[in-house]
Design a protein around this nucleic acid. Structure first.
Lengths: 191, 191
DNA sequence: AAATTTTCTTTACAAAAGTTAATGAAACCC
DNA sequence: GGGTTTCATTAACTTTTGTAAAGAAAATTT
């Protein structure tokens, strides 16, 4: 139940058995169906999730349309991270795309945990750093690459998601319309 | 000399006098002229800078052209952050845009400092979180806003930089060409 | 199984941004 | 101070993407 979590953490920080038990006691497990909204746009994200199973989608809502900000896979921490960190209303929503099993910790409990297990602070720093590096990577792709190049990279690194996620959600993640994605795919077919 | 640094830090963590003295001992001060390259694309960023005075520009190089990734003002930490954190070759360069006064700490010294002043770990986490939130903000503007809207926001929040930074550097930060920026500015003049 | 919704692609047209090149102004450098 | 480089704007033309609408295929619901 917690094995994936500690496997992930152990790459960053090594916890003792005791620390692991304290950490476990602060997380709860939750089964969530497909298409379930975990964090609603405008509300404060009170919880942080570790994905044991399933797929989550972070998205902006512009006018009446959803724009994908990120797709979280198994064995990652997920949240509307900036709302969670600042405890301010979220400008993003977070939904399940598939039935999911999540480990859940609240903001307050996480801060208590920092005090009980100070090494947790190091883990949190490293996760924040990783998320920064990741955001930076996506941003640099927006800056440097054309939509076509972004699609190619997405296909190469996340090809499996093409079968699990509707294309229009990927299109908006790439910063283009489904129409444009369809054109790009057609263009590339030929070559 | 260190007053701006501790003023900035005190918003995030409160250090004792002793801790401050240790921290000071790990930073050195450096005067750097305009147009000086602090971090070269392809090299590993070994240093982290706190800007006492001056303006720094982080940029990508695509083909022969520079594309601005970020402009750092006074009283901020600056580096090619992901290169510094991962100690991997940088895909960005960092230059001064003006004569600058910098407080400098190396990667190794920072890690020593984490051990001497554990509270520093909290500061580092919070700075990483802030930088993540910031990267997220820029990314969301790329996703949600048109170039015209991005320009308007830049003008509103960083209007002072328009006098300190050439427009073509701002244009590439906004993801457009100088030609396009000029058109946008003209379009908005009328309204 | 039929009906409904969602997803994906295509077409035609409009709008925006890129490209190249030219011009004038400003800043910089011996 | 004169010459050079850098910078900002404009124009003409091309390419790309967006928008709107329609139809086909797939998935979901009843």
């Amino acid at each position: 139940m917690f094995s994936a979590l500690f496997k992930y953490c152990s790459q960053l920080v090594s916890f003792t058995r005791e620390e692991q038990q304290i950490i476990e006691s602060y997380f709860s497990i939750r089964q969530v169906p497909k298409k379930f909204t975990l964090i609603q746009n405008g509300k404060i994200a009170r919880e942080l999730y570790f994905i044991n199973k399933g797929l989550l989608r972070l998205y902006y809502t512009k006018d009446t349309e959803d724009i994908t900000a990120f797709i979280f896979r198994e064995h990652l921490f997920a949240s509307s991270y900036d709302s969670f960190l600042r405890q301010a209303p979220s400008i993003q929503g977070l939904d399940t795309l598939e039935d999911a099993e999540l480990l859940v910790i609240t903001y307050d409990d996480l801060n208590t945990l920092y005090k009980k297990v100070p090494r947790m602070e190091i883990l949190a720093r490293k996760i924040a750093e990783q998320r920064f590096i990741n955001a930076q990577l996506i941003l640099s792709s927006y800056i440097l690459d054309s939509p076509e190049e972004r699609w190619k990279k997405f296909e190469a690194t996340n090809g499996d998601l093409l079968l699990r996620v509707p294309h229009h959600m990927i299109a908006s993640f790439l910063g283009i319309t489904p129409v444009s994605l369809s054109r790009i795919r057609k263009r590339l077919q030929g070559s």
